[in-house]
């Protein structure tokens, strides 16, 4: 069997069956390297297992409660601080924005009034001009659209056409009579 296999058995503390144990024993008797590794691992395991278990100082759990209290107090203080900080910040923001609005309104009030008057005057002028343009057009359009006017135009046009046609045919018969 290979040297590496025994090394794995030794280092991983593998559970071995009887035959494997015999094989290992035979190899340990032949191979100084594995023998030395095996003895070192055994001695380390012995050292570890016979060493006293480290124990905390007495009243460990009381110290834990005290520490936990401190942690919770700190957390509560943080929450309180954050809440108060948030409220203060919100108040400052609201107050300052209201202040800015008030201030600008006070400073610009006369100007705003003036601009408003100007705007309204301009609108009145504009509407007046529109009125001047659209009133005659409106009047004319009413006349154009009037049916009486349409009938009279239609009748006079057909009268002219009829008169023109009569004159035309008359002139043709006159031509035939005069020219042989």
């Amino acid at each position: 069997m290979k040297h590496q296999q025994f090394e794995t058995w030794i280092l991983l503390d593998t559970e071995l069956n009887q035959e494997q144990q015999r094989n290992l024993q035979v190899h340990l008797n032949q191979c100084a390297q594995c023998n030395s590794l095996y003895r070192a691992t055994q001695q380390i395991a012995h050292l570890f297992r016979t060493s006293p278990v480290p124990e905390p100082a007495p009243d460990f759990s009381y110290r834990w409660i005290a520490r936990m209290d401190r942690v919770e107090n700190r957390k509560n203080r943080l929450i309180l601080g954050a809440t108060l900080g948030g409220i203060s910040l919100a108040t400052i923001l609201v107050l300052s924005s209201v202040g800015i609005q008030l201030r600008s309104t006070l400073v610009y009030f006369p100007q705003m009034m003036l601009e408003m008057v100007t705007l309204i005057t301009k609108w009145i002028i504009f509407l007046n001009q529109l009125w001047d343009i659209f009133t005659p057009l409106f009047r004319v359009s009413i006349k154009l659209v009037s049916p009486v006017w349409l009938y009279s135009v239609g009748l006079s046009l057909s009268g002219i056409t009829a008169a023109w046609m009569v004159a035309f045919f008359r002139s043709r018969t006159l031509q035939k009579e005069l020219l042989p």
């Binding site: 278990v53 124990e55 905390p56 460990f60 759990s61």
Partner: peptide, 30 residues
């Protein structure tokens, strides 16, 4: 705290073996 009482030794010993000093082990276990 009763659970702390019960498991303090294994927890402390892991911390002690890992960190190597009682001071660091106490802090880590807490």
């Amino acid at each position: 705290a009763k659970l702390v009482e019960k498991y303090q030794k294994p927890v402390y010993s892991v911390c002690y073996r890992m960190l190597g000093t009682p001071t660091a082990a106490e802090d880590a276990a807490q």
